[in-house]
Write a protein that binds this DNA or RNA. Structure first.
Lengths: 233, 233
DNA sequence: GCAATGCTTCGGCCGGTTCCGAAGCATCCC
DNA sequence: GGGATGCTTCGGAACCGGCCGAAGCATTGC
């Protein structure tokens, strides 16, 4: 039974607090340096170096040298999805474990409002967008499958996106991604990625330094309301 | 940051060879006793007891007492999916790690041919069924989303299944589940579960003692060919 | 060349986890 | 009741894995 030991290896890789923090930090798709990841994990660079070597050997992370820096990123979207899946499990487990509401800090508040999830939008904003689009039958999302309706293609086209023209590779066009803070699905897949990119380009949202949280700009407030009938915040 | 530590906890839970073996053994949805799981993990009962206590505390496993036995099963289909996802990662990692083909034993051969995956069929048989149904446009599967076409409902109806009448709860009707041996999707969700159940009822397949592998009976050979145009084996 | 920066490797310490033998409950069977 | 059987708890031994200080390599900048 060669496979089961492999399962334990993957688990052990993620089952360390330091490495888990690093992976979570990489979840938005950016590439970070070893030092940055060391800070995220709360360990010294030499410890982080060891962790990153293991993550790389386990093919969860890939490195890219650039001068004297080494940028680390998740090896694939599949890895990101696996980690998101595990975080959902963790959230469910928490919910069952302690019935009392989870204490949240101000930093969590921003994350809960709107954040990136690898390459698409999550948090209340992401869920609201998915809800609004489903409401108008632009997309249909089931617990873990999704599609874009003809009306949806039309809509996205006027929004400036051509879902069929985009390079897809092996990626799925449209799929739900369960939100660990909202516990409801938001929009992922090629469409989810395109929408987020477009929102950045339009200046509707911008990244908050040092976190995966994003802020909605004034023009975003107006745009989300006008185009998606969504009132962020 | 309460969530990231939770991620590490889940990982650590799976990151022990003994516990990983237990979880893999439970992957077909059956409930097993502590002793059986101890054998699977290759440890003594008292060690297994400790592991199972942790898995239960982590809400990956639930127990059910029945006389002097305690039956353990995966806590939910979500847990099963998470573990399958991780095994896929492990398989991909393996593939990249050593280019040489993986050595397989005779036991693996049976598993690769046809096996249960929690509550649906996997292995070459599962993939072949999914392929055949997609070919005739009875279902449509994308990398991680799926649906049953009207023709599919008709087809399943003549096969003795009413997908809409079945109790669904929050489960998705139809979704792909990437096969770790074939590296191609097979059919999961309510439809996948119904089809497997029907095949058992028709006597087309039967469980092989002590494994998740299933054997195709002679009538199954005939049935799969006639109904699905699939030639197992 | 020299110093500074980013990262890795080495070595030893330390804490947590796993493991099993022995003993203790609980349940079933006769 | 008495004796299996199934499982858990307790205790201590062994082991692994993370962690950091010190030192070493690579790259950049002056």
């Amino acid at each position: 039974m060669v496979h089961t030991t492999a399962l334990a290896e993957i688990g052990a890789l993620i089952g360390d607090a330091g490495r888990a923090n690093m992976l979570a930090a990489l979840l938005d798709g950016r590439a970070l340096t070893a030092k940055e990841l060391a800070d995220h994990a709360g360990v010294t660079p030499q410890t982080a170096s060891g962790h990153l070597a293991k993550l790389t050997a386990g093919h969860l992370v890939v490195v890219e040298k650039q001068g004297r820096h080494r940028f680390h990123r998740l090896a694939s979207a599949e890895v990101a999805r696996m980690i998101e899946t595990m975080m959902q499990m963790a959230a469910h487990g928490d919910a069952a474990r302690n019935a009392k509401p989870i204490r949240v800090g101000p930093r969590d508040q921003a994350l809960r409002a709107a954040r990136t999830c690898y390459d698409h939008l999550a948090g209340r904003l992401g869920v609201a967008l998915a809800d609004a689009m489903a409401q108008r039958d632009l997309i249909r999302l089931d617990a873990d499958g999704g599609l874009v309706t003809p009306e949806g293609r039309q809509f996205l086209s006027t929004f400036g996106l051509d879902v069929d023209a985009a390079p897809r590779g092996k990626r799925v066009l449209c799929r739900p991604c369960l939100d660990w803070s909202e516990r409801r699905p938001h929009l992922a897949g090629v469409v989810g990625a395109q929408i987020m990119q477009r929102c950045f380009n339009l200046g509707w949202i911008r990244r908050l330094e040092g976190t995966r949280a994003v802020a909605v700009t004034p023009s975003g407030q107006e745009g989300f309301r006008r185009v998606f009938d969504v009132r962020p915040g």
